[in-house]
Simulated scan of single mutants.
Amino acid sequence: MRYNMIKSIRETPGILKNLKIGEEVERILENDFNRVIFIGCGSSYFSSLAGAYVLNKVSDIQSSAFPASEFMFHFAKMAKNSLVIASSRSGNTAEVVEAIKVAKQEKATVVGVTCNGNSAITELADIVIAAENAEEPNIPATKSFSAITYILQKIAIKLAHAEEMEREIEKIPDVIKNMLKNEERYRELAKRLAEKDAFIHLGSGSGYIAALEGALKIRETTYTLNEVFPALEFRHGPMALTNHGNKFGYFIIAPKAIGFDAILRLLEEIKHLNPILITNLSCEYSNTIQIPWQGDESLILIPAVLPFQIIAYYISVYRGYNPDYPKKLVKFVDRF
């Protein structure tokens, strides 16, 4: 049986290629603000991390990302004279809606990013960017995650006036289209991983954000424990988890960046556990998923997450679960 989740994943390149956000971004640039705050929940929070990551790496603009609940409970005062970019696939996520109200009380300019052009945040936000046809019927976010991440990264690039990155990000839809040709290999990896008791994800740079989202996809669809650590932090306590041996599956997400050699040394230490390395660098290690990305490290996130989406889907199917509708999950959370 083919579920909607895999269909949604396969639709990602077309969705990204058809996103049109130029006019809205120009309106954002007309505003004065002293910092940028990205907020969201679940996958949209990880998309928010991606937006802030780009700004922090390539500009001097102060930027932060928060789960919407943490922002409104603990950091609302930061919204004063700020640009707040609030993301929600449904546009109706309770914490995001309430956080927008809190931000507006602090006189923030609010940008709403959603896949639903007729929703609560579109009524509240000062500027709205809606990702057309990006909301999927399945509960786990797939093409919607990619679309929202793409939009937030484009906004960050525009704010940073990073012209080279503007050209680079336009290549992502074709990179994803090319990677989808490897679906069979990802399926085979899923079959090998289907009996694992838990999963450990180690990431560095933008690879850490990819690890967070990848872990969420496997967690949602397979009901297994997924732990995520900044790669080199693994030696500082979490290494004890390797005592479980091959009962756990391991992923290391390491884009080309300063520190890659240190990640390879860590890989060598846990090589006996057969971790899967996800990288855009050529590597002699056999258990590698090669990402065909040669642009800025901060933009590898969407391509790096794609294998996780497909692997999560197939592990779920191999276990006899329904990846479209994981138990105890809903399309959006309408209360808190």
Rank of each mutant, 00 (worst) to 15 (best):
I148P: 05
T149E: 11
I151R: 05
I151G: 05
L152S: 04
Q153E: 15
Q153S: 04
I155Q: 06
K158F: 11
K158T: 00
K158A: 14
L159S: 01
L159T: 01
H161C: 03
A162D: 13
E164R: 14
E166M: 08
R167W: 01
E168N: 05
E168H: 03
I169V: 13
I169Y: 08
K171P: 00
I172C: 09
P173W: 11
V175Y: 03
V175E: 03
K177W: 02
K177G: 15
K177A: 14
K177F: 03
N178W: 01
L180I: 13
K181Q: 08
K181L: 11
E183H: 01
E184N: 12
A190K: 04
A190I: 07
R192V: 00
R192E: 15
L193M: 15
A194S: 15
K196L: 05
A198Y: 06
F199A: 09
I200L: 12
I200V: 14
H201W: 15
H201E: 00
G203Y: 04
S204L: 12
S204T: 15
S206E: 06
G207S: 05
G207C: 07
Y208S: 04
Y208F: 15
I209L: 15
G214R: 03
G214L: 06
L216S: 07
I218E: 05
I218P: 01
T222L: 04
T222G: 02
N226R: 01
N226A: 08
V228K: 07
V228T: 11
F229W: 08
F229K: 04
P230L: 04
L232P: 10
E233Y: 13
E233T: 09
R235H: 09
R235C: 06
H236D: 13
H236P: 08
G237T: 13
G237Y: 10
P238W: 03
A240C: 10
A240E: 15
T242G: 10
T242N: 08
T242K: 11
H244D: 08
F248S: 03
F248W: 08
G249P: 01
I252Y: 02
I252W: 02
I252D: 07
I253M: 11
I253V: 11
A254E: 08
K256H: 13
K256A: 15
F260A: 11
F260I: 12
I263R: 04
L264S: 11
L264N: 02
R265M: 07
L267D: 05
E268I: 01
N274Y: 11
I276E: 11
L277W: 07
L277Q: 11
